[in-house]
């Protein structure tokens, strides 16, 4: 349905997006995940038609949208700070899109009440939007975007301004609503938990390009680069050297067997991801506990040398521990990436 080809955009003279290409198919929720400043929001505004790209095309059903102004694209947009119209009440906010399309008043009333029902805000019609809580405002914003039945919904960090409990709550609602409405959606966030729990497909945005694309499970299993593993917080990213016939690597912390899709030769410098495993796929890592930190589902153990592992039980400082680990190759060593141990 939506297809983006080779999109380029500069920001204050610096290239921000450099050849973005991806597509969104029917009923699919695609998550754009990237650190702040990576150009995620700009990409959304380009698709919405609120900005024009330096180069590249955006297609909807194989039709180039370059000549279609923002207000005729029929793409819904939900902002982080809601962007509700402060001079209108809840009903008129939600009705705005329908009024712009010149729908008859009776249809507007029916549809507004319907979408307010979907977001669980029936009875709020006459309330001033400035009186609502953050979560309620975000639901009004969602209802407003849903009301004109857009062919694509776009979310720009929609839950960024809300506290944790409310965020998880709304995320569940949102997933249900998107599933129900069968509208394709692009969801922008910098929070990988949010991305992994709502996305059918995750796109990792880094340095103006998409560095990894796949289902949450795929991306989690194979982050593909040291940067992605670092950004997603998947485990310890450390430098290593390939030894012993190419199936084992030597690190500061010991020698492990590792899984690699590349073809490395002995002596190659690579980056690897060290994660604790249930069985000893890669080997056993031995270390001295330097620090422990309580977590809701266990303990984060810091070892001397800077590695971190999430373990089910606590350990005394100074005690020796043995941890089964698996080791993934993340590609050739790059100096620019510094592991958390650095």
């Amino acid at each position: 349905m939506l297809e983006v080809r080779d999109l380029h955009k500069d920001y204050e003279g610096q290239p921000l997006l450099r050849g973005i290409a991806f597509s969104v198919s029917a009923r699919e929720t695609v998550c754009l995940l990237g650190p702040s400043g990576s150009g995620k929001s700009t990409l959304l505004r380009l698709i919405a038609g609120l900005e024009t790209p330096e180069r590249g095309q955006i297609f909807w059903d194989a039709k180039d949208l370059a000549a279609t102004p923002a207000h005729l694209r029929n793409f819904g947009l939900v902002f982080q700070d809601y962007a509700l119209f402060p001079h209108l009440n809840v009903f008129d906010n939600v009705a705005f899109g329908l009024r712009m399309r010149g729908r008859p008043e009776s249809e507007i009333i029916t549809r507004v009440l319907e979408v307010l029902g979907i977001v669980d805000l029936r009875g709020f019609e006459q309330r001033a939007v400035t009186d609502l809580s953050g979560g309620e405002q975000q639901r009004v914003a969602l209802a407003r975007a849903l009301a004109p039945r857009p062919r694509l919904l776009m979310f720009d960090e929609p839950l960024g301004a809300l506290d944790r409990a409310l965020r998880e709550d709304l995320l569940d609602q949102l997933r249900a609503i998107l599933h129900e409405a069968r509208i394709p959606a692009i969801y922008v966030t910098h929070d990988q938990e949010e991305a992994f729990s709502i996305a059918d497909r995750v796109l990792l945005l880094h340095d103006g390009t998409i560095v990894r694309s796949g289902t949450p499970a795929d991306v989690w299993a194979e982050p593909g680069s040291a940067w992605a593993a670092e950004f997603l917080g998947l485990g310890n990213v450390v430098p290593a050297r390939v030894v012993a016939g190419g199936s084992r690597v030597e690190t500061h912390y010991g020698v492990f067997s590792f899984q690699c899709a590349h073809k490395h030769r002995v002596g190659d410098e690579v980056m690897v991801l060290l994660r604790q495993a249930h069985e000893k796929k890669g080997g056993i890592l031995k270390g001295t506990v330097a620090d422990t930190l309580f977590r809701p589902d266990g303990f984060r153990i810091g070892l001397l040398g800077g590695l971190h592992f999430d373990l089910p039980s606590d350990a005394r400082r100074g005690s020796k521990v043995s941890i089964p680990v698996e080791v993934h190759c993340l590609g050739p060593h790059s100096r620019s990436i510094r592991g958390r141990h650095g």
Binding site: H71, F75, G76, R144
Partner: peptide, 22 residues
């Protein structure tokens, strides 16, 4: 907030209507 006008445009308001209605 420039996002208000952007929201209005994404909801189908042309530039004159953004001025008049928002």
């Amino acid at each position: 907030d420039p996002k208000l006008s952007q929201a209005a445009r994404s909801l189908g308001a042309s530039s004159p209507r953004v001025w008049w209605n928002l």
